[in-house]
Design a binder for these strands. Structure first.
Lengths: 202, 202
DNA sequence: AAATCCCGGTCAAACGATTGATGGAGAGAC
DNA sequence: GTCTCTCCATCAATCGTTTGACCGGGATTT
């Protein structure tokens, strides 16, 4: 148990990075082994198999997401400003865990049955938590659920691929200026959705 | 030229569907051949190779997107309502070509250098067209470029993965009720962005 | 204390299967 | 006969997985 946890953890970290960057099919167990500084057989020994490893990676990512969102919900007031802050916290989370947006989108693009339970187990409950917190704040005529989906799509889209600047180059969350612009946009988007008066122009 | 175009076209269609559903790495040339009712060697004969085939698929998809967007821009008035209609037209396009959102997102998740030229050649010009059309309509303090990115992220996210209903099941563009809900949401989102008075509640 | 056993962790090597690609031969149109 | 299109057979490379052995150290036995 001295270096075993170390090995398993290194494998999980490497797999997380590679699955996020290259997708499931684009990542080989040998890549993961090399990135973790271990042998292919050791990866199989710790993870049981590529598919099991992927499931473990997704499980850990979802747990981190749930913890972050529950923590944010506990600290944020249940009013309009609180909802704006909540979206901001989620962006913080994606900045701290840059692999998660890509991991999420790759997973979202496939509908493999063996990861479907993650949606019932994690995604749907989190969606319900956020929606029920926002319901009493949002004015009539606004589709809260789709507002939340919009935040998710935008944050994951920006986090995983960034945007194209004027020269056609990608700019993403690692670009402070672009991140600030994205934050301002989401802040205004949420603010208008919850009926807050217009923010100061960014 | 009698049945050759037929063969090449069948291959391109099959490849488009499979690349959209399974991604580049998740699709094999044999799958494409089988889906097209042809032999693997025939695929190589017409397409030259898997990578060239993928490039051809992406090129065709982007051309269709450009044609649709240019057509929509030509027919739509240059005012607030026109911008709402423009977003609606783009949703129409994604409904007619259900593979495109997934194709787009898969491509967006990878940063392969041999497809990077597509961004300068297609994506950036289209973005510029839409942004310049919307600029004179949008009130101050709104980040037009990010509003357009929001439409793109939402439409592709919804088109490629759908949303989770109350039971954790996926609902997407093939579900008329969910599509209508999505349309209403985007319509309201664009309407508020261009400073239009609140729409009737959906 | 010394010798023995056991076991979790790691490795090189190999497994069968599948990958993208190619060469050569056959079929049909002109 | 020539050209276009298609298929069968095969290639080397890589895939995920398994095997059998080796190392190190704690427990057990003598």
């Amino acid at each position: 148990m001295t270096s075993s946890d170390n090995g398993r953890e290194r494998i999980l970290d490497a797999a997380t990075r590679l699955f996020a960057a290259l997708g499931y099919d684009g990542t080989s167990t040998r890549m993961i082994a090399e990135a973790a500084g271990l042998n292919v057989a050791t990866v199989a020994y710790h993870a049981g198999g590529k598919r099991d490893l992927y499931l473990a990676v997704m499980e850990r990512a979802h747990q981190a997401e749930r913890a972050a969102l529950e923590g944010a919900l506990a600290q944020v007031p249940r009013d309009a400003e609180g909802m704006v802050a909540l979206a901001d916290r989620y962006i913080d989370f994606c900045v701290e865990h840059p692999e998660i947006p890509a991991l999420w989108m790759h997973r979202w693009l496939s509908d493999a049955s063996d990861v479907a339970h993650l949606e019932e187990q994690y995604v749907r409950p989190l969606m319900d938590m956020v929606v029920s917190a926002a319901r009493k704040v949002v004015p009539d005529g606004v589709d809260i659920e789709y507002v939340v989906w919009t935040i998710v799509w935008c944050t994951h889209g920006f986090g995983a691929g960034g945007v194209l600047d004027g020269d056609g180059r990608r700019r993403g969350m690692n670009d402070p200026r672009e991140l600030a612009r994205f934050r301002a946009h989401i802040r205004r988007l949420v603010a208008t959705a919850v009926g807050l008066p217009g923010q100061a122009a960014g």
